[in-house]
Design a protein around this nucleic acid. Structure first.
Lengths: 212, 212
DNA sequence: CAGATATACAAACGATCGGTCGTTAATATA
DNA sequence: TATATTAACGACCGATCGTTTGTATATCTG
């Protein structure tokens, strides 16, 4: 199959639509997002969507896929440039904070909005979003395990336990910074994980100082 | 003003409607909740709502108020029976976990759903919900301060910092237990706070063992 | 009892929802 | 060049959204 002009054009607009959908969904969720408003935001027509997706749910599923790719490129990939172990773990946390504070998405975090929206709503979107969370936590857990094996974290550490803590302390920054604390939420979210890791790390000099 | 039959009847149905509204909103949010479905769930008519509230937003604001009262009675009040200090602090955390695991609300937590929904949606509901979060964090912070003054927490503790951690680690249980972990989320959320408090507490015997 | 007031409703409003249909213009294949 | 195929559209569908209107009924006041 050659990349002919038709399909290329379709692909471009498809991607532009998904980009907008992820952006809008970070604010109002994937259900709160209506096809009418998405059409307005992308400068296209509602009915045009059905040339690309069978129904709204298929568009939602593709939007999740797009958000996963975006998250992988903007958060996971940069963290992988840090040396494995506790430094990579904290780099992952800081990459997440940067993603939030840079305002990549107007709503802060696509997954926070969508997971809160779908955690009680059975269906394909919930399953896909659940898998995304599963994969994300699995990734953190593997970094923890690797750090333990490298002797950079105490052997008593339970990887699933620490993964939960790191994710929870990072995720709630979105809510607190927007609804309560403003910038202070970033300080709290960063320090919480930093303190926790330093306390578990035999060589804390691998990590930044607690109050730089 | 005597409690005449009219107002009493009105009050009863008003409360029944709010109870249902909070329950439904814990699942689908305060916007996701439609007046039509709320009418069906309460066995009343849509138009009857406008005898009690001017518009949907007023109903939403009252629902937040109702949820605050429910939270205060079910979580805050029981914790206040524990002796002040670190024990009360952990009792507060455990009361919250019980609120979630008992399934008081079908969606787990009204505030989690609604705050995630409104953190990017300016308006009266957002402001009210923001104040609720503010009050809640202020309450936790005061318990931390009190524990420090009682010598039950290290003097180096930053109350706002620790309040953020306790709230974040407790709140995300809702999402993780429903979308990922199931019961394990409760274990992680409980242990995270317990370990943190024990590490900061000069007399850890005030708190439960880490692995009971 | 008469009159005012409050609860609750059915019916209907315009707007918007997700989705269908039929068409047009452009591109690819033969 | 003739024929499919595709992206994209305007018009429209039934359903549902929040809300208004008018009304019937029950309760309190005078």
């Amino acid at each position: 199959m050659t990349t002919d002009g038709r399909r290329l054009r379709g692909l471009r607009s498809r991607e532009a639509i998904l980009e907008q959908a992820v952006s809008l969904a970070s604010v109002e969720g994937l259900n709160g997002l209506s096809l009418g408003r998405l059409a307005t935001a992308t400068g296209t027509s509602k009915s045009g969507f059905f040339s690309h997706w069978q129904d709204k749910e298929e568009l939602q599923l593709d939007a999740v896929e797009w958000a996963v790719r975006q998250w992988t490129e903007a958060v996971v990939a940069p963290a992988l440039e840090a040396p494995a172990g506790v430094r990579r773990l904290f780099a992952l946390h800081e990459a997440r904070l940067r993603f939030y504070s840079d305002g990549v998405l107007p709503g802060g975090c696509f997954f926070f909005s969508v997971q809160a929206e779908f955690d009680d709503r059975p269906g394909a979107v919930r399953d896909r979003v659940s898998r995304a969370l599963h994969d994300w936590l699995g990734f953190i857990r593997r970094q923890v395990t690797e750090a333990v094996e490298l002797g950079e974290l105490a052997g008593s550490v339970d990887p699933a336990q620490l993964a939960y803590e790191i994710d929870a302390l990072g995720e709630m920054i979105v809510l607190h910074s927007r609804l309560h604390d403003g910038p202070a939420a970033f300080v709290h979210g960063r320090r919480a994980v930093l303190q926790r890791l330093r306390a578990l790390c035999p060589d804390p000099s691998l990590l930044p100082e607690d109050r730089p």
